[in-house]
Nucleic acid binder design. Structure first.
Lengths: 356, 356
DNA sequence: TCGTTTTAGTAAATCGTTTTAGTGACTTTT
DNA sequence: AAAAGTCACTAAAACGATTTACTAAAACGA
């Protein structure tokens, strides 16, 4: 017996030592079959007939030798990877990270992990990266602010995706509500000439954001002056591009009293451009952001913005994928097309009542 | 033949269809053995005796049915996961994301992926998360701003880790140089009473940063006034904690003309606190940050800061792990303890010459 | 023409699980 | 005392690749 044990522990050392004991080792040590151990350790019905005493021996030995089922063997057999894939534009944009926090919070509880890939808005990677994830046997995919350019039958959930694709659930902000909050806030403060900074074409929220804002403006009898609209260009997640957009608007020399930016990052750039032009925020021009990134509260002036619950969106996306995995094929047919979360208007100091 | 093909493609449909053809399927279709296909497709020496014609048949069939070796099967056999683990405090702190971008850039080229876990500075997760990664058979671990609290024989590389642990490589900033740049810059501008915001205890750079800054100050005959030193507290990556620290310093009512903050995020909070106290930056007080996050250039005033090349640090870390994996055990004994990257002083508008 | 080499492959073991289908040895029922 | 159950297990197949150790036939050399 103790001889056996010796053998095991020796064996263990001799291995890369990272890979612990195998079921085979353990079974030999106990003088039982692999089957019995597997049955008992996984608490399968087949273990019913095995007396508690034997079960305890097995549990004790597993504990003692710190047995961990080999991930590859288990996954190969079960055809399950306990892994999701997450596709993001890139990780340092202050957006994806928050979403991933939410994803991880949900997955960790279920013993799932996730692989991340960034497509950097490159068309080839947009196809290639998800393919690689699928070859890696991910069980489902979460696409964050990323268009779906790959075929698959796996569960797919997007965060801020707006393409209505059969079988794909989109976790989205209630954009109509967001636009109402934003335009409504500026309108209430008396602003009638509002400049807008649109998102880049590749950003999945650009279109819907613009449509809902247009509607909200129209509803209040505001007409949008094309010269007061600029679009973000370039794919770096830096305020620089907001600065450039704002410059463009200023160059048009059309009067305006407020700016509704596509996001907080571009709002920061816009503020810089305004101040360089000698305009004070919010005394001369109000600036409204979108997202509520961490820094928003500490800018100077502190940014008024529309908050997106990114952490919650990540959680919701992960939960939805796991739900689909748990469901039978029949039930899976009735997956929701859209899951909506609510925005929140956070009023700080970058917006003020229009000057008399 | 065409019958065979029919069978294969049917088989393919009938499966979850995500899992493509197996070698077995393919071999049956070609009337060859699994062995031959494996040998040829992996270009093993054993395939030397197989005529080009047969090889071509195999390649064509693999192409036609889009054969992809099963990841689990291959990994089980080879005891290789082609996956690294990355441990971070959390993903939305504007620091880890940049590092991960670098990591991914290197790994993608080699067909590697990575699993991420966040420990949120929690002691239990600091041990548990890496354990889970190891059970998932990662081949190496990259720890970003994270202390090593787990045993392993896998290659481990830290980014901004300072514990000298045998076998672990630390990718670090040249802190001495960074301190020289920072303190030197303020000194040159005439500042003699400088306040400091130290990092949280859990942050791996806190200690070394403080030591090197102290030295650089001493060297210039500056003495550090304890009342002008505050430490960040709390683990949210928000400027709020810098704001609180600055308030504390202000409460001491000791005069000072400059602040050297632990990082840009806390510098943002500090600026807010200063302005609330009626002090103008940089006219009354200069503020120096650290990191050079994206927003730094667009704050108001634009932040003078010490830039850390986070992307490069991520690349270097990943490269180092891969190198170690490629090395034989003998060579592996001479892994470098430390890899150093250089900081850069980025002068913007938050620092100015001291008032006469 | 016999022995050796080369050519063209293949059978089977292996990685470490899970799961199906058993197998003896007892015990209970009738 | 034979049939039917229960109990306590186990053998072997399967997941899908890689790899080692072969075989049978053809070609070559002396």
């Amino acid at each position: 017996m103790s001889e056996n044990k010796q053998k095991i522990s020796k064996n263990r050392e001799s291995k890369t030592s990272e890979t612990g004991v195998s079921l085979k080792n353990l079974a030999a040590h106990l003088g039982l079959s692999i089957t019995s151990l597997s049955l008992v350790l996984n608490d399968k019905p087949g273990a019913n007939s095995i007396p508690q005493e034997t079960k305890d021996r097995i549990f004790r030995a597993a504990e003692e030798f710190n047995y961990r089922p080999n991930y590859f063997a288990r996954s190969l057999r079960a055809q399950k990877s306990f892994t999701l894939g997450v596709v993001v534009p890139e990780l340092s944009d202050g957006y994806s990270g928050m979403v991933l926090n939410g994803v991880e919070a949900v997955l960790a509880k279920e013993g799932y992990f996730y692989l991340t890939t960034s497509h950097l808005h490159r068309d080839d990677l947009l196809k290639h990266n998800p393919q690689m994830l699928i070859e890696r046997q991910v069980e489902g995919i979460i696409a964050v602010d990323t268009p779906i350019r790959f075929p698959t039958t796996l569960p797919v959930v997007t965060v801020s995706g707006h393409d209505k694709i059969k079988g794909i659930t989109n976790v989205v902000l209630n954009h109509q509500h967001a636009a109402e909050l934003g335009v409504g806030h500026l309108f209430t403060l008396g602003h009638r000439q509002i400049a807008f900074i649109k998102g880049q074409d590749f950003s999945s929220d650009t279109k819907i954001r613009w449509e809902t804002i247009s509607e909200a403006a129209l509803k209040r009898g505001l007409k949008i002056e094309p010269k007061l609209v600029a679009q973000l260009e370039g794919d770096i997640p830096s305020p620089e591009i907001g600065y450039v957009a704002m410059k463009k608007i200023l160059a048009a020399r059309k009067p305006f009293t407020a700016v509704f930016a596509f996001n907080d990052v571009s709002a920061i750039g816009a503020i810089r451009a305004l101040e360089e032009a000698g305009l004070r925020v919010p005394q001369d021009v109000s600036v409204l952001g979108f997202d509520d990134i961490y820094a928003a509260a500490f800018l100077n002036p502190a940014l008024t913005t529309i908050r997106q619950p990114l952490f919650e969106m990540g959680k919701l996306a992960a939960q939805t994928v796991l739900n689909q995995l748990a469901k039978s094929n029949i039930e899976a047919s009735k997956i929701p097309q859209t899951l909506t979360v609510e925005p929140e208007l956070v009023i700080r100091n970058s917006t003020a009542h229009v000057k008399k």
